[in-house]
């Protein structure tokens, strides 16, 4: 055990301790998990990451300086005061001013300048110059609309963007404060009821990036996630066009039966499916539900099995969320799943 005498502990052990920590951090931080601020995938997060690495370097240097000074202070064999020394130490005071005033000023002034510079480079593109999306936060899901398409394109918990182009995001809230965070692409910004905040996203390469709510918004704040899907330009256009079409009409008897279940079981009170009588607006738009990655704001993958579990009892999976449990016969559930699966 390292308890020995305290005097021998400081520098060698501290140095070893922090080296281990740094190595561990390096290993554990390697995770490419689609939501890492340390692995930026777009210019927004990249500019912030540049600032971060710079600050980490400067902070590490200052930390080592402080620890080293402390170590030397405790162990140096130079002249020391007599006990109960009260004489002013002008040399020591100079070091205090050097370390406490000069050093911070020298380091922080350029840091402040670089911060303000980065801040300026993070400003959203001008209105009208980029694609615009409106995201409205509600407990506990994300309502997404694309400007220009108006009510013809409304989706939920998923935002598609073209690679290499900025997209302006207007953030609103219908209820409490939420926060829009896609760490791999951009810093976060809050959704505050009564005001509109504007952010932007841009991805350098195609991929799926995870997003989450980052302001405590109640019981299921944890389960208010979303996905940002970056597509190459042509695929993005295709997606945009496809999403603006009305729902795929029910082709066979199972699908039609499922549609009937949907319309008669109360689902249409909260959910809209364009091209059908369903016009509810309290919950996510389901017109192209089958094209989405997840159910219930990132809670479950969008597969038949998970969807079955969700519809059978949403309260068991995400207790307190606003979708009630509606009992269905097994055959009703089966055809409903077929119908929802057809809404590509």
């Amino acid at each position: 055990m390292i308890l020995l005498t305290v005097r021998t502990v400081p520098a060698p052990y501290l140095a070893r301790f922090f080296l281990v920590v740094a190595a561990l951090a390096g290993v554990l931080g390697c995770a490419q998990n689609g939501q890492s601020a340390l692995h930026p995938a777009g210019p927004g997060a990249e500019r912030i990451a540049d600032l971060w690495w710079l600050m980490l370097a400067a902070a590490s240097a200052v930390f080592l300086l402080v620890v080293f000074s402390l170590y030397r202070a405790l162990t140096h064999r130079g002249r020391r005061s007599e006990p109960q020394g009260r004489r002013d130490e002008p040399v020591a005071t100079k070091w205090v001013l050097a370390g406490g005033v000069a050093l911070p000023t020298i380091i922080l002034t350029p840091l402040l300048i670089f911060t303000l510079h980065t801040l300026a480079r993070l400003a959203p593109p001008k209105s009208g110059s980029a694609l615009e999306v409106t995201v409205t936060g509600r407990q506990w899901w994300w309502d997404v609309q694309y400007a220009g398409a108006g009510s013809r394109l409304r989706t939920a918990n998923e935002i598609h963007i073209p690679v290499g182009r900025p997209v302006r995001i207007q953030l609103r809230s219908e209820d409490v404060i939420h926060s829009f965070w896609v760490p791999a692409l951009q810093g976060k910004l809050d959704l505050v009821p009564g005001q509109v905040n504007t952010t932007w996203l841009q991805a350098n390469r195609a991929g799926i990036y995870r997003g989450e709510c980052a302001e405590y918004c109640g019981l299921q704040h944890t389960r208010m996630q979303f996905r940002v899907v970056a597509l190459p330009a042509s695929e993005f256009s295709y997606w945009l066009t496809a999403q603006q079409r009305a729902a795929v009409p029910a082709a066979d008897s199972s699908t039609r039966a499922g549609q009937a279940v949907f319309m008669s079981s109360g689902c249409a009170l909260c959910h809209a499916i364009r091209g059908t009588p369903a016009r509810g607006s309290g919950g996510p738009d389901l017109t192209h539900f089958a094209s989405r990655q997840t159910i219930a704001a990132g809670t479950l993958p969008n597969t038949k099995g998970h969807l079955a579990g969700w519809i059978a009892n949403p309260q068991a999976i995400k207790p307190g969320n606003l979708m009630p449990r509606i009992p269905l016969e097994p055959e009703q559930l089966r055809t409903l799943l077929v119908y929802l699966g057809s809404l590509r």
Binding site: I48, L51, M55, G187, K188, A214
Partner: peptide, 9 residues
Amino acid sequence: VPFDWQAHD
């Protein structure tokens, strides 16, 4: 500020 936009909350 820019870093806080990643680190906050």
